[in-house]
Amino acid sequence: MAHDTHPAPSTVYHPAPPGMDTKIAARDLTVRYGGALALDRVHIDMPGRAVTACIGPSGCGKSTFLRCINRMNDTIDTARVTGSIRIDGEEVNDRSIDPVLLRARVGMVFQKPNPFPKSIYENVAYGPRIHGLAAGKDELDAIVETSLTKAGLWKEVADRLHQPGTSLSGGQQQRLVIARAIAVNPEVILMDEPCSALDPIATARIEELIDELRENYALIIVTHSMAQAARVSQMTAFFHLGALVEYGPTEEIFTNPRDQRTQDYITGRFG
């Protein structure tokens, strides 16, 4: 393996908060696109029922890392993933793991809101439908309503559930997509820069939502905004050039970064 030729990147770990239960654990996680190294031997333990923020300059591999967790990298022909990543101790990269099942357990929200060309109702009902989670129409209605309510969208769309999802505003679309993700009741929700296409008011609503969701789900979010990371996350991971540089409780990372690169990045010296 090519990455064996240079020393493993060293990571600064802050002590984990007391009583943290590890939900997701990565060991030597490496991703290459064709020949190019995008993620270099990442080693990390992330808690359940908390928000973990991934920060770092563009192209440092945050999205790549996120996509390892629900094996979205499978859809890219050139991507090669090695190393281990476990959810609740279960190996994700194992051949016996069906990505379909995995993705039902790990939801994902993208940078650009991408509602399907269907009605609002059908967007939310999509996951339960394909996975067969609802026994009947009533149950499905209930799931749609609770999901939309949890996503804080129910009041706004209750009377137009059958209009196309694309007719909503950008912020509403993003909340619709979050509702779609939580409709299958996943264990983990991945969010890749969920607010970067939204205005400040919509961003504030999503942040509120993230804070509420924390109680039931493990959330991992990628963000370019230091302030957002500081506001919503409990843990923060700083990536740089494909390597995990520093990881620990958000407060410590922002107040007392131990690596010079982390310091430079959060004080805005580069990135």
Partner: peptide, 20 residues
Amino acid sequence: MNRPASIRSAVEARLARRHR
């Protein structure tokens, strides 16, 4: 609220058919 086990079995029950 969280019911991973039941979801898991529900999804698994349909997997074979979906793959076919």
